[in-house]
Amino acid sequence: MTHALVDLIPDLPKVLLHDHLDGGLRPQTVLELADEVGHEVPAGDADALGAWFVEAADSGSLVRYLETFDHTIAVMQTPEALARVAREAVLDLAADGVVYAEQRWAPEQHVQRGLALEATVEAVQAGIDEGIREAAARGQTIRVGQLVTAMRHTDRWQEIAELAVAYRDRGVVGFDIAGPEDGFPPSRHAGIWRFLAEQNFPVTVHAGEAAGLDSIAQAVHLGQADRLGHGVRIVEDITFHESFDDDGERLAELGPLAHWVRDHQITLEVCPVSNLQTAATTATTVADHPITRLKELDFAVALSTDNRLMSRTSMSHEMTRLVTEAGWTIDDLADVTMTAAWSAFVHHDERRELVDELILPGYQKVEGALR
């Protein structure tokens, strides 16, 4: 059954909530764009460059992982480059069976050649729109929204939040903060969160990756985050016992913050392959990654990729590893897909349409093939 399921994973409809636009470039695109702007990259052909990104990111350090973005951001400084990268991202995701995605990126990192912030958002949206049209011509249905991100350490949070809100009806679906988590908490600019709440604007916060429970607590209480980017370090507020319940599951005792996150079903955007690279958890294998235990404990878990280039991953790859290494079934895959769909930063009726028209029929088709 495992082998049959793995073979059918590419056919499953997928929902991707945590995917960085500047972390998903095609290696060949990096080479071509670098040549256009005179940026030196570490390798001269696509295969070697792709391998370099993975090796550089696979260091066990989030700081080192983030350094790989120096090259992708450097080649994404013109409207044409931003549109191309966005278009190709949509096409690559659609080819992987993704039917809904949110692409997060930081406009402030793409103004080095004089672009206005507004121009960067518009260029990315033009690329997204073109990608959606091309995917439709290939018979693939996908919807993609922008998650506009402020970098924690550059202190432009209010400006970027206002930018995101200004484009809420022109492709932007939510706001995020990213970058160095430890030392740059949500309280650094406390007023921004009230502004976003008053604007009724969705928020996700990178938290529980490079910093622990205090970071998560600020994200959910001060930031009023609907979702947590990664969030896997919530396990630090869970005590796992040696004894088991009647279903054979290891007993666990939740602390007050873990209870809060689970009780409020704050979605954890979990990226297993990336987490192993950056040592976001103590796990060293997908089999030991806390995503499985968190899901079993009824946390709202959504599976994501984080950075497809640096992790050499895709949604199909993440799902395959969970099936082959952690024993996941099609029901487990359906569970995280449905959670992601119901956590998408679109309105309730749009989520319902996504579930009823794309996800459920897609899973029913694959389940029928498995019988």
Rank of each mutant, 00 (worst) to 15 (best):
Q364G: 09
T68K: 05
P10W: 03
G191W: 05
A287I: 00
L147N: 04
V220A: 06
R188Q: 13
R170T: 12
A302N: 01
T2M: 15
E88K: 03
A135Y: 04
V173A: 12
M315G: 10
V54R: 14
L163E: 13
H153P: 05
F184W: 13
L25S: 11
R170S: 15
Q103M: 13
K14I: 08
A211P: 06
T120Y: 09
A279T: 12
A43I: 00
E236L: 11
G24R: 09
E118Y: 04
L213M: 02
A123W: 08
Q28W: 01
A283V: 01
H39F: 11
T284N: 05
S311Y: 13
A123F: 06
R170F: 01
R188P: 00
A369D: 02
F53S: 03
V336M: 05
I9R: 13
A56T: 13
E269A: 05
V75R: 11
H110L: 08
K365R: 15
F345I: 04
R227F: 08
D245W: 06
P27C: 00
T68M: 00
A74W: 10
Q103D: 00
D306F: 04
P13N: 10
S243V: 10
F299P: 04
L31W: 07
L115F: 06
H206P: 12
I132Y: 07
E32H: 09
L25P: 05
I330R: 11
D58A: 11
R138Q: 15
A116V: 07
R312T: 13
T339C: 13
S311R: 12
G255T: 01
A166M: 13
Q224R: 14
I73V: 15
Q218H: 04
I216M: 10
P13W: 09
L251S: 05
G23Q: 10
R168K: 11
V165T: 00
E130R: 15
Q77C: 11
V232N: 04
R133N: 03
E253T: 12
E253R: 02
M76G: 06
Q218R: 07
A334T: 15
F184K: 07
D237T: 01
R26N: 14
V173W: 14
Q277Y: 08
A164D: 09
E55A: 14
R352M: 11
V235W: 08
A119Q: 15
L33S: 02
Q224Y: 01
A86R: 06
A178D: 09
W105A: 00
D7N: 15
D45S: 02
E350N: 02
D245A: 06
L147I: 15
P180A: 09
V15K: 12
E318A: 09
P186E: 03
L12F: 10
I291F: 01
T313Q: 09
H110F: 13
R138N: 10
W328T: 11
P186D: 03
A56I: 02
E357I: 00
F175Y: 14
T305Y: 09
E269W: 06
L251K: 14
H39L: 04
T120K: 08
